[in-house]
Design a protein around this nucleic acid. Structure first.
Lengths: 328, 328
DNA sequence: GTGAAAGCGCTAACAG
DNA sequence: CTGTTAGCGCTTTCAC
């Protein structure tokens, strides 16, 4: 069995083309060279099937190209779509993407940041887990960070969906339908959305009821427990808004389990549109978020080193289907 | 504003500990050293918050650690779960994972393989796109590949779900319900499953009808077109098996659109269990696949260089819900 | 048990 | 315009 042979290096190309390695390097990175030399180098490189080693370049430049991506959970449709957006943009720049899942846990996040630093990744896109304190050391070390979906510190640029407007629209819609006892099933950390929720209610003159805002952790179990608890303790509520698709899923499941009919007994609006929202019975009214765009724009931001806006906010859209009805 | 300062190198640690760089390297990689020296080096490294640069190590070793992962579509729940399994295993080894989406297109796949080679990634897990011909050069170059979900060449180890058994169980179930006109809505390339389908039908003495096997490409549009076409052209069919969750989604949608009631007019079994299958109306009977395990095991295989079994086959499970009924 | 030194493939500074 | 050369941080002989 023959060994996997040594790969072609820049030196091989230089020798074969009868030029110095620097010339090869220059030609390949678009530097100046005479037309004749350029052609000869290019031809030789092609003939030898030469591919520059990212290893050598990275070490030399003290930074590995490519971008790191940290999301809470890749099996959540929202983050999967966001990831898809990042990959789509990164690909057009030829940049590889290294991904890690944080489980929405600052500790795991910190560990993953460590790994990225070890790899000398200096560009990362992250859906931050906690209050963003985890990022202080990385930022101090000069890491180029862009936040996606959540904005937890103002010294980091970010791309987010317009939470406030989305929540406001949904609540206005629900109130317009006559609902007063509206619950918000949120994930821990969704303070933006919760604030928008209570603000909107207040602005519409609907009395606040702190007990109608409940929180769950980012797991299916926790979501289900919170949803079921809400339905059981508060038989008086007539509408629910959920802060994400997993919470919506839990609510549909819990409602079915507890024989709460949607929309007859309670109306439901879910944050985030997912393919199954339409297949659900009844089809779910949702606040659609441009998940893919969020990822794409974040990648653009982190790749174009230039001007770095504070925060990019992308619009959301209320999609009315059949999970809401007038207050009974 | 002060510059991002140079990171601590092995040399810094060596100087601070009063030893040579070789000793630091040895200690940190578990080589031999006197207890006293070891302790001093470790203490110094910790004090300086030293993190070895993967760049240096990789260049020296002519291979970047970490593993490459190529999937057709990260927004497909199945591949997202598979990815999650890979990440989960890779994390326990501290190995970073670089991901790429192929769109199930050999050309894009080839391009991504090129990127991986450029990064000197020598370990990759892939859901191969075409007939596996794309992989020949990479294999020749010594790349360490493990296939997941699909086995398209026998010189590459792989981890797959037990297609044949899954399809057989589903078909037997359907035939047991009295169905004879059973269609299979497959993705291009699912020859295993199609073969299992026709084989099982034959073994049960159900006459074959080639027109009842239809193929779609790996996009929502294509899936929907195929599903709708099937329903419209073949009003005589009484049951459908779909080769994946996206095809199942399309079938549910098309059925609704065309006022075909499930399970009253046609029974449906979907390959792959997804969270929404239970939320669907009616809840879908499915063949569950251990997507996460497939990813996990593939990662184990590619990380443990040792013995390399041909193919690991993981069991599937028929989960009966409410989308199938007796032949009307 | 330990240190000095070579060198992985590449780019950038500097000469010519 | 082009070649020579010096490292980037690390591991691994090879002497001591």
């Amino acid at each position: 069995m023959n060994m996997a042979q040594r790969r072609t290096t820049i030196k091989d190309v230089a020798e074969a083309a009868g030029v110095g390695v620097a010339t090869v390097s220059r030609v390949l990175s678009g530097g100046s060279a005479s037309a004749e030399t350029r052609e000869r180098v290019l031809a030789t490189a092609a003939r030898l099937d030469y591919r520059p080693s990212a290893l050598g370049r990275n070490l030399r430049q003290q930074r590995s190209g490519g971008i790191g991506l940290l999301v809470p959970d890749i099996t959540d449709s929202f983050y999967a779509r966001l990831t898809d957006g990042v990959l789509s943009c990164a690909r057009s720049y030829g940049e590889p993407v290294t991904i890690g899942v944080t489980g929405d846990d600052p500790e795991q996040e910190a560990e993953l940041i460590g790994t990225l630093i070890e790899q000398s990744m200096d560009r990362v896109i992250a859906v931050p887990s906690g209050d963003g304190e985890t990022w202080a050391p990385a930022l101090r070390a000069g890491l180029n960070v862009v936040f996606a979906d959540r904005q937890v510190r103002d010294d980091v640029p970010g791309v987010v969906a317009d939470d406030r407007a989305g929540v406001r629209t949904a609540v206005e819609y629900l109130v317009g339908l006559g609902h007063k006892k509206i619950a918000f099933l949120a994930r821990h950390g969704q303070s933006q959305r919760v604030a928008a929720f209570t603000d909107t209610l207040a602005s519409l003159g609907v009395p606040a009821d702190p007990e109608l805002v409940v929180h769950a952790r980012a797991s299916r179990d926790s979501a289900y427990a919170a949803a079921a608890g809400l339905l059981q303790h508060r038989a008086d509520l007539t509408a629910v808004l959920t802060g994400g698709n997993m919470l919506g899923e839990a609510m549909v499941l819990a409602a079915r389990e507890l024989h709460v009919r949607i929309p007859r007994d309670v109306s439901l609006v879910m944050f985030d549109d997912v393919p199954w929202a339409e297949l659900c019975s009844p089809p779910l009214t949702v606040i659609a978020q441009p998940a893919q765009d969020v990822g794409y724009r974040a990648a653009e931001l982190v790749l174009r080193q230039g001007r770095r806006p504070r925060t990019v906010t992308l619009p959301t859209e209320l999609i009315v289907r059949a999970s809401c009805g007038p207050r009974r």
